[in-house]
Simulated scan of single mutants.
Amino acid sequence: MEKLTLDTKWDKTFALSDKVNHKKIAFTNHFGITLAADMYTPKASLSSEKLPAIAVAGPFGAVKEQASGLYAHEMAKRGYITIAFDPSFTGESGGQPRYMNSPDINTEDFQAAVDFLSNLPNVDSEKIGIIGICGWGGWALNTAGIDTRIKATAVMTMYDMSRVTNKGYFDENDSEESRYQARVAVNKARTENFAKAQETGEYPTVGGLPDQRPEGDTFFSQYWDYYKTDRGYHPRSLNSNMGWALTAATSLMNTSLFTYANEIRSAVLIVHGEKAHSRYMGETAYNDMVKGSKYAANKELMIIPNATHCDLYDGGKDNYIPWNKLQEFFAANLK
């Protein structure tokens, strides 16, 4: 296990409830990368009691001190043992070079979280669920398609990272030529940065939000309102600061997620805001999952009136996160 340096002070974007216990933990995935996580446990639980458990991750480029931690913290208040983890190469987790992503490794991150929870003495290993937010909603659905130990998956304000990487937002760059030019650019960057990366172990980063708020009420300005303000800023968050490594999306350019989504037998809830720019990705994923499937009965798409994409990160000003629905969903399927 890699030796990680974990911050011991409370540095979340939300307050710690007196109803839960919190501690830092670490575990290693099958690629040998050590993941850092926050564990939340209901204070009212008995030491001899085996509880259902939930692993949480996301958004894509965020850290566990932001939205995923909020979800884990809230579900622990509702009786679940939960962990919110930093994905490989990000936050307090290990993995070199930094700020990379991988469809295979990130799916494995969720599976490693299930490994960890399944082996806790106070967890009922037959009652494990996951929650994925934004891009990690996509990884969550992908993981549900491979990991039969997962009994329930909640997908919040989902991005399909393979789709948006290969087709652009709203599929506006869905052409062979656009994809070819993107491949040319990323491979040119690999060549140009090879020597420096060999020496320093680092690649230049790209995609962080600007210091000044973008004009208008676009989804970029909505991201800024979360990641660059007291509402959601965190110094370790890629989205709050430097962005991803310049060549991080290489694997996504040759990947299609959810290939066998309509064979998922466990329960899946996909939640999107009515006004979320990403809504089309969740609706497509839901339709692909239930189309021609024998297992459509325990799949559900929930649209939250008036909510935008980032409103489901922390609730927004009108508390849009459907906590009671999540409680009902997991209670019904982790039993």
Rank of each mutant, 00 (worst) to 15 (best):
Asn101Thr: 12
Leu269Arg: 13
Gln181Pro: 00
Phe14Glu: 09
Glu108Cys: 00
Lys43Ile: 10
Gln222Trp: 14
Ala276Ser: 15
Tyr169Ser: 09
Glu192Ser: 15
Asp171Pro: 01
Asn193Asp: 05
Ala245Ile: 11
Thr5Gln: 14
Val184Cys: 00
Gly61Ser: 01
Val206Met: 09
Gln212Arg: 15
Thr308Pro: 04
Met75His: 10
His234Ala: 10
Tyr313Thr: 04
Asp288Tyr: 04
Trp323Asp: 00
Glu74Arg: 14
Ile83Pro: 01
Asp86Ala: 06
Leu312Asp: 00
Ala189Pro: 06
Ile303Pro: 10
Gly292Phe: 11
Phe116Ile: 00
Tyr223Val: 05
Leu46Gln: 15
Arg231Leu: 13
Phe31Leu: 11
Thr259Arg: 14
Glu65Pro: 03
Ile264Phe: 09
Trp139Ile: 14
Thr308Ser: 01
Ser17Pro: 02
Met1Ser: 07
Tyr40Pro: 01
Gly91Asn: 06
Asp160Thr: 11
Ile130Asp: 07
Gly69Phe: 12
Lys196Trp: 03
Lys64Trp: 05
Glu283Cys: 00
Tyr286Leu: 04
Ile270Pro: 10
Asp11Cys: 07
Phe116Ser: 00
Pro121Glu: 05
Gly216Glu: 10
Glu92Tyr: 05
His309Leu: 07
Glu92Gln: 13
Tyr286Glu: 05
Glu283Gly: 05
Gly138Ile: 01
Leu301Asn: 07
Asn122Ser: 02
His277Cys: 08
Ala307Thr: 04
Lys291Asn: 11
Ala113Ile: 06
Ala285Asp: 08
Tyr80Ser: 08
Ile54Gln: 05
Thr284Gln: 05
Gly316Tyr: 03
Val206Ala: 12
His22Met: 13
Met39His: 12
Thr284Ser: 02
Asn254Val: 08
Ala182Pro: 03
Ser47Asn: 10
Gln111Ile: 13
Trp136Ile: 06
Lys9His: 06
Gln111His: 14
Gln66Trp: 07
Leu141Thr: 09
Leu252Ser: 04
Glu74Pro: 03
Gly69Trp: 14
Asn324Met: 09
His272Arg: 08
Asp86Tyr: 01
Ser178Phe: 08
Gly135Leu: 11
Gly207Cys: 04
Ala332Asn: 12
Val56Pro: 03
Asn262Thr: 00
Gln96Trp: 11
Arg190Ala: 03
Val186Gly: 02
Leu246Gln: 14
Ser118Lys: 11
Lys335His: 06
Leu4Cys: 05
Arg163Leu: 12
Tyr80Arg: 02
Val63Gln: 09
Glu65Phe: 00
Ala267Thr: 05
Gly137Trp: 01
Phe116Glu: 01
Leu334Ile: 06
Glu202Pro: 02
Met39Thr: 08
Met39Ile: 15
Gln66Phe: 07
Thr28Val: 02
Ala195Met: 01
Thr34Trp: 00
Tyr226Gly: 03
Gly135Ser: 10
Arg279Thr: 09
Val184Gln: 11
Ala44His: 10
Thr28Gln: 00
Tyr223Asp: 13
Ala267Arg: 05
Ser221Gln: 06
Gly61Pro: 03
Ala297Glu: 09
Ala185Cys: 01
Asn298Met: 08
